[in-house]
Amino acid sequence: MRFFKYLSVSILSSFFFMQCSSAQKLQKETSFKTSNVYYQKWVAGVKGGGSGTNVFIPLTAEQKEITLDSLYFRGHKVALETKPNSPKLYIGRIIGSANQKEGYTSSGDKIPFDLKDNEAVVSYSENGNVKYFKIENISEKPMQQFPSAPPRK
């Protein structure tokens, strides 16, 4: 009886671990194309206004059957979003630790991918299935420094 219990637990564990390892398998080809993926650091012009890095992922055509969900970049996992007037441009916003209000702590997630500084992984859903795609050679644009508001008189 113990043998069967051990065997069934072993089989269930094996299926669980196989599912976990296949859940993050990178796709070699996707049904969508990206162009000129880049990131840009930014800093606010006021003390405590924040800083961070925005990653821009433009799609060459709007895809109704897919939805880009999350971005894994430089040790962070963040949600991807679009703006209503730019449905083909996805943006991942990583909040930095510089120029933050007191008490701010950065949450560097442990990501399940081994990436270089100019690489990212995008998770997306296609026909109800979550898939992962690696983007290489992400370029950096010059830092964007937002000016502070003029003093009130």
Results as ranks from 00 to 15, higher is better:
108 G>L: 06
40 Q>S: 03
59 L>Q: 13
90 Y>A: 01
48 G>H: 11
38 Y>T: 10
32 F>W: 12
124 Y>Q: 08
105 T>A: 15
34 T>I: 14
113 F>Y: 01
79 A>Q: 13
38 Y>P: 02
112 P>M: 08
90 Y>H: 10
119 E>A: 13
35 S>A: 11
64 K>R: 13
56 F>N: 06
51 S>I: 09
37 V>L: 13
93 R>C: 09
50 G>F: 03
108 G>A: 11
89 L>T: 13
47 K>Y: 07
54 N>P: 00
127 N>W: 02
69 D>Q: 15
74 R>N: 14
84 P>T: 14
78 V>Y: 07
119 E>L: 07
72 Y>G: 03
92 G>M: 05
69 D>T: 12
61 A>M: 11
90 Y>N: 06
50 G>D: 01
46 V>C: 04
72 Y>W: 05
112 P>D: 09
80 L>W: 13
48 G>R: 07
36 N>R: 15
33 K>I: 10
128 G>D: 06
54 N>L: 09
83 K>E: 13
89 L>Q: 14
118 N>V: 10
31 S>W: 04
73 F>T: 06
32 F>S: 03
98 A>S: 13
51 S>F: 09
108 G>F: 07
85 N>R: 11
63 Q>R: 12
113 F>A: 02
126 E>F: 11
116 K>D: 09
84 P>F: 15
78 V>K: 00
51 S>V: 10
46 V>L: 02
73 F>D: 03
89 L>W: 13
34 T>D: 00
69 D>P: 00
106 S>P: 07
45 G>P: 08
95 I>N: 08
65 E>Q: 12
92 G>K: 03
48 G>S: 05
84 P>I: 14
47 K>C: 05
115 L>A: 04
115 L>V: 00
29 E>D: 09
99 N>M: 03
105 T>E: 04
70 S>F: 09
106 S>L: 14
79 A>C: 04
67 T>A: 03
100 Q>V: 02
100 Q>F: 01
58 P>V: 14
73 F>W: 08
99 N>D: 06
94 I>M: 05
29 E>L: 13
97 S>T: 13
86 S>A: 14
60 T>N: 08
114 D>H: 04
